[in-house]
Design a protein around this nucleic acid. Structure first.
Length: 273
DNA sequence: AATCGCGCCTGACGGC
DNA sequence: TGCCGTCAGGCGCGAT
């Protein structure tokens, strides 16, 4: 999916168009996403006003007086704001039409995304209540990561991709951050030193901020709310570069499989195993 | 409690 | 040209 920078880019991109706007109509063309879209969703949303648009981890939240719509982009989803008369294309599963003639359109070819509703405090929702800290807050510190890692034997890459520890770090940015911090992805989490934890946290923050600034990373499907791709792809230094020279030392970038995910690193620069 | 691997989907690509 | 296997930004779930 879209990792945190793509979700943040989308959240900020749609907010000015829909916050404070009243929903006129909800069209659901394909309700079978990762979970079925609740049958009463259109009824919950129509004639209601969006009070705010926010994000928790990779979940986009549309806030209403009487509840919250919870949207996840999955692996291949994107949200766009288009004009009301724009014809629907393939994989345009949901349209939310606003009184100001803005159309919020959810497209997701692989349908790993989700659109759910909760009438309660969204923070208590099953999908959100066990999420870890936000990576761009002061709560995500070297000491925090060090403490979370001490009791864990999983590779450090798996730990930083564990949403119960820190949200939003997906495969691309985990690879990039570990390279930037010169830490081998297979290093057991419990072997991480405090200094390394501090370096890794700093690298994650720097990379996520840089990716948000660039509008995210587009490999194939992701688009910003205005339809433009993200440009961070050009700034990736290890992800997808197997066999190419390391930007640091010119040795070849390696690729291995770790937890079914492609894992890129430089054997020379990330030696601390 | 922690860890592992599966599967939900479509589509792009490479080898034969 | 087409068929087949593999891979792709995520993540909850059941088995161990």
């Amino acid at each position: 999916m879209p990792e945190l920078p793509e979700v943040e880019t989308t959240t900020c991109g749609i907010r000015p168009h829909i916050a404070g706007q009243r929903i006129r109509k909800v069209i659901i063309r394909h309700k079978q996403l990762r979970w079925p879209i609740p049958s009463d969703l259109a009824q919950q949303l129509e004639r209601r006003t969006v009070l705010g648009v926010t994000r928790r981890g990779k979940y986009i939240l549309l806030l209403f007086k009487h509840g919250t719509a919870i949207l996840h982009l999955g692996m291949s989803g994107h949200l766009r704001v288009v004009s009301a008369e724009t014809p629907a294309r393939k994989h345009d599963h949901v349209d939310i039409l606003f009184a100001n003639d803005c159309l919020l359109r959810f497209n997701d070819p692989r349908r790993f995304g989700a659109l759910l509703w909760t009438g309660l405090d969204y923070q208590q929702h099953t999908l959100l209540k066990n999420l870890g800290v936000e990576p761009l807050t002061t709560a995500f510190s070297g000491r925090y990561l060090f403490a979370a890692a001490r009791s864990r034997k999983v590779p450090i890459k798996s730990l930083v991709m564990d949403a119960r520890v820190v949200v939003g770090v997906g495969n691309i940015y985990a690879n990039e951050a570990l390279f930037a911090a010169a830490i081998h992805p297979l290093l057991p989490a419990c072997a991480l030193t405090l200094i390394q934890a501090q370096q890794l946290v700093a690298a994650i923050k720097k990379i996520l901020r840089g990716a948000i600034k660039a509008g995210g990373t587009t490999l194939s499907d992701f688009l910003q709310a205005d339809g433009k791709p993200g440009y961070f792809r050009h700034l990736l230094v290890v992800y997808g570069r197997a066999g190419q020279p390391c930007v640091n030392c010119n040795n070849f970038v390696q690729v291995i499989r770790l937890a079914q995910r492609s894992t890129f690193f430089c054997q020379h620069c990330q030696v601390n195993l």
